[in-house]
């Protein structure tokens, strides 16, 4: 133990949610390797196998979509990947913060408030989504999955989609007390079907009525429409505003819900 007197931090230096992001960055040093590998391998696999490979079959069968299949599916894969990463990061890792490693309990014993812990976790997920989506876009572009500069807007579209869902999952993470079986059900019965039935692989007009209505509810379909609109056009301003508004409703209510559940869990 040193005898050196450490100056107290100035009171003006109010802690903010960014401190939490900083913590996550430090913690991420332990698992950056798998983050990077997964962040590259996953897009490469989807783009090559289901974009390029399946594209050969689809494009040989007459161009019913008007564009090469890869150009059609790639923005949707990008959005779906954002949603999956968001769901994964907001579920078990957050539960660990409450239950197993109890990092969040440590954080609120500093001047950080539960709201800031919540915001910080969500911000961190947003940072990851932006990085991942950019990487995804680069890989898409490398294999001919992009046609115009507007496609860059797929990054914010995917991030918004991911965050709209992540905030809800974060609220759930703060509620669940058991070993997280609820998440298993969430992934199997919500995340996977959403990926398959939200018009990722084909326009939802191919689906029967009930399938279309499922897609309208799913935030992923709205995100996919935005990203695909950015990539190949054909999206009216009114439709774009509608999709954004729907996702914003999810996001705002999700954040409010998550903050509330964080407060309840961390001040108990």
């Amino acid at each position: 133990m040193g005898t050196e007197v450490v100056a107290a931090p100035p009171l003006s230096a109010r802690p903010s949610a960014w401190r939490v992001v900083e913590y996550q960055l430090v913690a991420a040093r332990r698992y950056w390797r798998s983050m990077v590998i997964l962040g590259v391998i996953t897009p490469l696999t989807y783009v090559l196998a289901l974009g390029v490979g399946l594209g050969v079959v689809v494009d040989n069968n007459g161009r019913q979509l008007g564009v090469p299949y890869l150009v059609f599916v790639a923005p949707a894969f990008l959005t779906a990947a954002a949603l999956q990463i968001a769901a994964a990061d907001a579920s078990f890792p957050l539960m660990a913060g409450f239950k197993w490693i109890r990092t969040f309990h440590g954080m609120v014993s500093t001047p950080l408030t539960p709201d800031q812990v919540c915001d910080g976790q969500l911000l961190w997920i947003a940072v990851r989504l932006i990085v991942n989506s950019s990487l995804y876009l680069a890989i898409m572009a490398a294999f001919g999955g992009t046609q115009r500069w507007w496609v860059l807007l797929a990054i914010p579209a995917a991030t918004l989609t991911g965050m709209a869902f992540a905030s809800m999952v974060a609220a759930l993470a703060a509620v669940l007390e058991n070993e997280g079986n609820g998440f298993n059900v969430l992934f199997r019965f919500v995340v996977t079907p959403m990926f398959l039935f939200s018009g990722t692989f084909y326009p939802i007009s191919q689906l029967p009525d009930w399938g279309r209505w499922l897609a309208y509810v799913s935030p992923l379909w709205h995100g996919t429409e935005l990203a695909r609109g950015a990539g190949i056009g054909g999206l009216s301003a009114a439709a774009a505003i509608g999709h954004i508004a729907y996702l914003m409703v999810w996001l705002v209510s999700g954040v409010l819900l998550a903050r509330w559940r964080f407060r309840v869990r961390l001040t108990k």
Binding site: V57, V58, N61, P193, L196, F201, Y202, Q206
Partner: peptide
């Protein structure tokens, strides 16, 4: 889920 989603949705595109 995969069977229903991809079977129903893709068959027209794939032929």
């Amino acid at each position: 889920f995969y069977l229903f989603a991809l079977g129903t949705g893709l068959h027209k595109l794939v032929g």
